[in-house]
Amino acid sequence: MTSALSSPLAQRLLRIPPAYYVFGALLLTLWLTRPQLFNPNVMGIFIRQVAPLGILVLGQLLVMRVRSIDLSGAGVILLVNYIISSGLFPNGTLAFYLFMSIGIGLSVGLVNGVLVGLRRSSAVIVTLATNIILIGVVQLLASGKPPGDVPGFLRDIYNSKVLNVPSAVIIWVVLTGVLSIFLSRTVYGRYVESVGENPTAAHFSGVPVARTVVTAHLLAGVMAGLAGLVQTSSIAVGSIRFGLDLPLNAVAATILGGVIFGRGDGGVWGPFFGVMSFAMLFIVMTTFGIQEPGKLIAQGSIILIAAIFYGLRS
């Protein structure tokens, strides 16, 4: 087994993020079994569904590149959703909601970043803790009075299309492109690459390691806030129970896309296709009538297999 794995061809194939294989395989399955779903409108709706996940993944891949993790996304999304749908700000404009989402994300990211980057506490535990704090706070705020309606104009924007492509998908792709350029063209991108490869060496070569990690968490918070805004726009009535599984799916898609603690082989587009794979997976599972438990098992297996794939490589 080891000899087969060390052959040049196997090595080259192993270097391609699994997301591309999974995406291809699912696309093929769909094409063979349900060719009627292969039209832009249907596909657009399914892909639009995963846009919040895709935006959340942008933050996740950033923190995972610097060997951290952010599991507080659900809390941020929930808080954003609650504030928008609770009617606390009945005259809120788009700009207001946008700033509010980013502000919430930044604050949570700051707490995470300071504890992980400066205090060097365990990232899993810190972000899980901020997550349950946020969830607890939202549930407390909502107790007794269920959240109300989501403002109509958000829903209109969500439902709009540009050149037959849903706006949400466009926002996701643009954000992905911006992050891609940001990481490949700026000094910060070099910092991220260095810290991910070897934090000690990064420190010794003058990279501001702690600041890089804190910034990654700030950006991850912002992405979570934006994901919350898009997610909220997709529903008519607020909820205090939705989006709880998003952070885990984001971790799964990121690993699938070839980014795993410190290793950024998949870049930004690998995880993008990780999310696309999830979109396909949802279609395939829905068409085959697989229920929620089956989806959980499938997602867990995907994370495990993708992680083993990387474990075998190193």
Binding site: T186, Y188, N198, A202, F204, P208
Partner: peptide, 29 residues
């Protein structure tokens, strides 16, 4: 190996990083 180099990254990155790290993070590399 542990404290000095980025073994998985290119020669160019390993040499250039100390030049990069003297500049602000948001600058174009």
């Amino acid at each position: 190996k542990e404290e000095g180099l980025y073994l998985g990254l290119s020669v160019a990155h390993n040499v250039g990083i100390s030049l990069h790290s003297q500049r602000p993070g948001l600058a174009w590399a």
